[in-house]
Computed example of a mutant assay.
Amino acid sequence: MCGRMTMTHPDDAMARLFQAAPSNDLPDVPRYNICPTQAVGVVTSGPRGRRLRPMRWGFVPHWYKTPTDGPLLINARAETIAEKPAFRAAVRERRCLIPATGFYEWTKDADGNRLPWYFVAKGEGPLVFAGIWQDWGQGDDRVTACAIVTTGASDWMAATHHREPVVLAPGDWARWLGETGEKAAPLMRPAPEGFYDRWRVDPTVNSNRAEGEGLTRPIAA
């Protein structure tokens, strides 16, 4: 699962990292509480090379009459992505990279209170999630939207949540983007042991209106 994330790395640094041409309308950074339906920077690949471009976080199947006509699809399960009508064409033809600095997950205490945890790569370099995308609608109603691919959690992650985002190593970016002609299915797996750091953060982040660097600061667990 991945339902909130952060992005603090500058757009120009991300464009260089992915060797992608950046769009002029990328979301402002830093961002410490990116929520579903908001825009995120996404890397796609096409005949003219890679692009770093904004997309709505929340996939919109082609049969929706409006972007809110059905469930909000922010994640796509690796185990069923190739069969689900909403995702099967996209995972074959429109895979993307979704960079982030970190993401949040929640546990509950004995009283049912939601306790947020913040996850980053060790060393706090960028995370690169496997994603899928597609266009929906036409003209002024056109929406370009994406979803993060998730898989069953590793033993370490399962202490917090039973799902985790599929994170891609640099050597796998081209393969996921379809640039090498290799099958991408083997990449849909949990992060290796020791990949993440995590710490408790203040419940202020439970509000989707909260923002600021303080949301990611550690507190006592």
Rank of each mutant, 00 (worst) to 15 (best):
E124L: 05
M188Y: 02
W173K: 06
T66C: 09
V40E: 00
G125R: 14
A169T: 03
A78Y: 04
M55G: 07
T6G: 01
M1R: 05
G194E: 09
I219R: 12
M14W: 08
L177K: 06
A153G: 04
V167N: 00
W156A: 13
A174G: 12
A86T: 01
L215N: 03
R200F: 03
A210H: 04
D155Q: 11
R48Y: 05
Y64H: 12
G139W: 08
T101N: 11
N33L: 11
V43L: 04
G102L: 08
L168W: 03
M1E: 07
W136S: 10
G137S: 10
M1G: 12
A220N: 10
S154D: 01
V205G: 00
T160L: 15
V143A: 06
T37S: 15
D197V: 04
G41L: 08
A174W: 06
T107K: 14
S207T: 01
T144L: 10
G171T: 06
A147Y: 03
A159S: 13
G171I: 06
E211Y: 05
G125C: 08
G152Q: 11
P99C: 11
V43S: 00
R31H: 12
A220I: 07
T80M: 13
R198S: 12
S45F: 04
A110P: 01
D28Q: 14
P116T: 11
E79M: 12
S45R: 02
L168D: 00
W57P: 04
V42Q: 00
G152E: 13
P22V: 09
M7W: 02
V91C: 03
W117C: 03
F195D: 02
T160V: 15
L26D: 07
T44L: 11
I81E: 01
I148K: 01
R31Q: 15
L187P: 02
E79C: 13
H9Q: 12
S154F: 01
T204D: 14
E79Q: 13
P85M: 06
A210K: 05
K108D: 06
V201H: 00
S45E: 05
A184W: 12
P27Y: 12
A158C: 11
V167R: 00
R189Q: 14
P165D: 06
K122Y: 04
T204E: 15
M55V: 10
